[in-house]
């Protein structure tokens, strides 16, 4: 019997892994992927709450759709920025990007 706690534990592990990756990697693409992992953990939580606490409405799932939208926009803009960085400085190591202006 799978309970709400099972989903919460899996989502918490996923979020902690994503947080660890986003903080520890220096490759900008890897940081973007870690952020996507964290957003997925949030989605998993929302769906699990929707399933176990308000199973007769779809509200939690609608919030998930909004998170999905923002995640897609974030991936598009983030990748555009990373491509432009790679084109200009042939480097996507975030340690090198500590200035706003050259």
């Amino acid at each position: 019997m799978i309970t709400l706690t099972h989903y919460l534990v899996v989502a918490a592990i996923l979020f902690a892994l994503g947080l660890y990756g986003a903080l520890m990697r220096t490759n900008a693409i890897r940081i973007l992927m870690s952020i996507e992992l964290m957003l997925n953990a949030v989605n998993l939580n929302l769906v699990a709450f929707s399933r176990y606490i308000t199973p007769d409405t779809a509200r939690g799932q609608i919030f998930t759709i909004f998170v999905l939208t923002v995640a897609a926009s974030e991936a598009a803009v983030g990748l555009a920025i990373i491509l432009q960085l790679a084109r200009r400085w042939t480097e996507i190591d975030v340690r090198k990007f500590n200035r706003l202006k050259w």
Binding site: I2, Y7, V10, N43, L44, V47, A48, S50, R51, P55, Q61, T64, I65, L68
Partner: peptide, 10 residues
């Protein structure tokens, strides 16, 4: 996991 939680559209 979404499917298991009954969120087929998602």
């Amino acid at each position: 996991l979404f499917l298991l939680a009954g969120a087929d559209f998602l």
